[in-house]
Amino acid sequence: MIWDQILDWFNPMIEFLVQAAKIVEKYWPMLLRGAGMTLFVSILGTIFGTVIGFIIGTIRTIPLAERGFKRGILKIINAILSAYVEFFRGTPMIVQASVIYYGSLMALGIDMDRTFAAVFIVSINTGAYMTEIIRGGIISIDKGQFEAAHAIGMNHTKTMFHVILPQVMRNILPALGNEFVINIKDTSVLNVIAVTELFFQTKSIAGNTFKYFETYFVTCLMYLAMTLIVTRILRHVERKMDGPDSFNIIPGNQMQVAKPEDLLKKK
């Protein structure tokens, strides 16, 4: 019968879903804790990384003085910062995690808290990328914005804080969202230093149940759900930052180019 054939064909799939559901039923606290840790590390890592990026990106765009002591100092700092960026962009995070965690344990005798180590590694890694993103963001702001701020007497710091960086923040939001999503996924490499994030938990569950496909399938869906939700939230934030497309006209005396006599009187 054709129905039996169709059922035969669907049976393994149904069986698979039942097994997956069983794993969820039995191990959901572990999975949730893992997902929680993944989110915790990637959120903090993205935030700290962005802060690092803003600080370093801003320092790297300070205009060089023509001569003198300040120029020398700035050049040295820039060289160090650029070495930092090159190093962390040029090596895999999984290797960085091992080097930093085991390195500090064996060479320096510091037994880092694993969660702290995780946040630390993701932060400095994200920081290296964000530095370049923010530097690009600053460079891409129209020169006229700097000039207008300077022309009303703002120094470099005030110009940055009140005029340039808010615009950079808006412009880099899509890239920031990108980094966040990458971090959610890439924290999985932290299982090498036994951070109990989602991938680590999944590995333990799969090792216990021997149901590899089912377990990883559930985890796969959990990662997808996290990244989709985060992306939606960031979109919303972007729209919020853009503000409404229209504005309110303040009703009052119609458009008269008022006589500047009062301007004279003041002087």
Binding site: G144, A148, M154, Q167
Partner: peptide, 20 residues
Amino acid sequence: IYAYRTKLGMVFQQFNLFNN
């Protein structure tokens, strides 16, 4: 120079209003 610049108002060809 920052105090000096406050004494001069500058109007640019490209307006350069603060976009944010």
